[in-house]
């Protein structure tokens, strides 16, 4: 946002004040997340920077909390559980969500707005209500405390994100490409796999990543549904935070932040790719 050359003194002052304010807001957004990373290397079990840490004395830092995390069977098995649940839920949610988005974007779809609103609703219904209802439901059909019930619940919570991102990708989609493909003799299936899918892939992957992170991060439903064999890492973190917050949690949190950065990069690359697609061929 460049300042015009004729800007008055007052405008200049305001302009720089504005930039400082924005800088502070960005700091507010990011600093809390970044600050836990150095703290997770704290040699002492406290949540503040020790004098040694501030003077960059190596003695102030240690890997002990990462050690504690990665040698603990409970943490490792709960991390495994979390990933197993998240990956399974993502595959199902992405499939169902993509199909639904394809249907919703057809002009012939009746009651489109109402049905979209319905499919998105798990995102906005308070989680405590969803969790209690799902628990009652799966308990009644003898499936509570199983991976199946947790995965299915996470499909419910993750699918709306897929519907949203794929619908958004489809809205930028040029339907003439379908006609072009079909006029050249491709049938519907070939058209879908050769033309539609490659163009939608960034949207689908983005939706899938959302579903994945939603499941991985979900606490309330698993608090109700998970038995000791399914305990995911979020449940452990939650009770840890409630009862005795130990730097081991910060070690796991730092790993999760690193993972978020990785996912974010993937998303950014996908976005660029899809933008290139659109501007190149649209």
């Amino acid at each position: 946002m460049a300042l015009p050359s004729h800007a008055s003194r007052l405008e200049r002052i305001w302009h720089y004040t504005y930039l400082v304010i924005c800088g502070l807001i960005f700091f507010f957004l990011v600093a809390p997340i970044i600050v836990i990373i150095p703290l997770s290397f704290n040699a002492t079990p406290y949540f503040t920077f020790t004098r040694e840490m501030l003077t960059l004395d190596p003695a102030g830092y240690s890997m002990r909390w990462y050690d504690a995390l990665l040698t603990s069977d409970e943490w490792l098995s709960s991390i495994r559980n979390s990933f197993f649940i998240a990956i399974s839920a993502t595959i199902i949610a992405t499939t169902l969500g993509t199909l639904a988005a394809l249907g919703l974007s057809r002009r012939e779809m009746p009651a489109r707005a109402a049905i979209t609103a319905f499919l998105i609703s798990p995102m906005i219904v308070p989680l405590i209500i969803t969790a209690a209802a799902l628990f009652a439901f799966y308990a009644r059909v003898n499936l509570s405390q199983t991976f199946f019930s947790i995965i299915m619940s996470h499909v419910v919570l993750g699918a709306p994100f897929v519907v949203i991102t794929v619908t958004a990708a489809l809205s930028g989609f040029d339907n003439q490409l379908i006609r072009a493909s079909q006029s050249m003799g491709a049938n519907q299936v070939t058209t879908f796999f050769k033309v539609i899918l490659p163009l939608l892939l960034p949207g689908i992957i983005a939706g899938g990543l959302f579903a994945f992170i939603t499941s991985l991060d979900e606490v309330v439903v698993v608090l109700f549904l998970a038995g000791p064999e399914q305990t995911p890492m979020t449940v452990r973190m939650f009770s840890g935070l409630r009862e005795e917050i130990s730097p081991t949690i910060l070690a796991l949190a730092s790993i999760l932040v690193a993972m978020s950065i990785g996912l974010l990069t993937t998303m950014e690359l996908l976005r660029r790719r899809s933008e290139a697609h659109r501007t190149g061929r649209g």
Binding site: P32, I33, V219, I249, A253, S260, L263
Partner: peptide, 11 residues
């Protein structure tokens, strides 16, 4: 993109 629990523990 960062876990809700991570952000809450940060605070």
């Amino acid at each position: 993109w960062t876990s809700l629990l991570v952000r809450t523990s940060a605070w």
